[in-house]
């Protein structure tokens, strides 16, 4: 058998050229532009919004805002201190109520619930539906059952429980996703070493799911911090003192912003814009905590 030697010189080019580029097809380009456009819509809206609020509120963005109490009489001296502290109180307790409850509920649904049982499927559907319920409905719930039913009144306790119920489905859904993303092989490896179900969850599944859970927690609290409707429903309004406990009446930034925008004098709209900036800053601070937690837990591996 003879073996043909490989050609030593490249073959002469053929005509028309086989490999000549004809440019990116139109459809590819069109699709790429469409994607870019959709992304730009969101981004531009955000930039315009933040710029507008910043410009509008710039004149009032000073120490008066955090040092003074709100006033509906003197816009020059009015501040938002009680609203800022109220929001901090509210968020702290919303997180305390909703995060452990939501995470534990997610663990039950992912790790213990038998998906073939009708009641577990019913719970699952309900959790998804609850996430879509308008926040004002939660306000009605809070007013009827917590504020009046349990007699807590328009206090920090009522507000935080109402907001916790509002964001609970978000925490549950995000935590479930995070728990589900932990590979089964990790669970199997742990169980095969004689770890119990709970040890496996506590030592393997939860640590691996923390980044996802932290992201979900932030999504939930970001929703809660901006909610005005349920709080208005509860009767949260103008308050000129800082809350001093769970049973204290309070006001919150979104409510304060809403109140100011309903005032006729233009100074109050500027004040509302300035308070919006404060709200955004609080939101970013909260997000950065979550990002810190996420990075820290990831670095440990």
């Amino acid at each position: 058998m003879t073996i043909t030697a490989p050609p030593t010189s490249p073959p002469s080019p053929v005509d028309p050229p086989l490999l000549k580029a004809t440019g990116e097809p139109l459809r590819e380009r069109a699709f790429k532009w469409m994607l870019w456009f959709c992304m730009a819509v969101g981004l531009i809206t955000l930039v315009v919004l933040i710029t507008y609020v910043l410009i509008k509120g710039w004149g009032r963005l000073d120490s008066r805002l955090i040092q003074n109490m709100p006033s509906s009489v003197l816009p020059e001296t009015a501040g938002a201190q009680s609203a800022i502290t109220g929001t901090l109180w509210l968020m702290t307790f919303t997180a305390i109520w909703s995060l452990p409850t939501g995470i534990l509920a997610a663990i039950y649904l992912e790790e213990y619930a038998d998906p073939n049982r009708w009641y577990n499927r019913a719970i699952e559907i309900n959790v998804l539906n609850l996430a879509a319920v308008p926040s004002i409905v939660f306000g009605i719930l809070g007013l009827a059952f917590i504020s009046r039913g349990l007699g807590f009144g328009p206090t920090v306790l009522t507000g935080s429980i109402t907001l916790a119920l509002l964001v609970l489905p978000i925490v549950v859904i995000a935590s479930r996703e995070a728990i589900r993303a932990v590979p089964q092989s990790i669970r199997a490896g742990s169980l095969a070493l004689g770890a119990t179900h709970w040890q496996t969850i506590y030592r393997q599944v939860l640590p691996a799911a923390i980044p996802g859970i932290a992201t979900g927690a932030i999504l939930a609290l970001s929703r809660a911090i901006g909610e005005a409707a349920p709080l208005l429903m509860l009767g949260v309004s103008f308050v000129r003192f800082n809350p001093d406990g769970l049973m204290s009446t309070f006001t919150a930034l979104p409510v304060q912003i809403y109140n100011w925008t309903t005032e006729a004098r233009p100074e109050y709209t500027d004040l509302a814009a300035a308070a919006s900036v404060v709200l955004l800053v609080l939101l970013l601070a909260m997000n950065s905590v979550a990002i810190y937690i996420r990075n820290k837990t990831q670095r440990r591996w």
Binding site: G189, S190, L193, A195, Q199
Partner: peptide, 29 residues
Amino acid sequence: RRRVGMVFQKPNPFPKSIYDNVAYGPRVN
């Protein structure tokens, strides 16, 4: 499962340190 250990098809070390991987069994037990 403690008496009958298992090694899986795909290596499945825990996302922890080497030390903690080995110490995991004695710890959980």
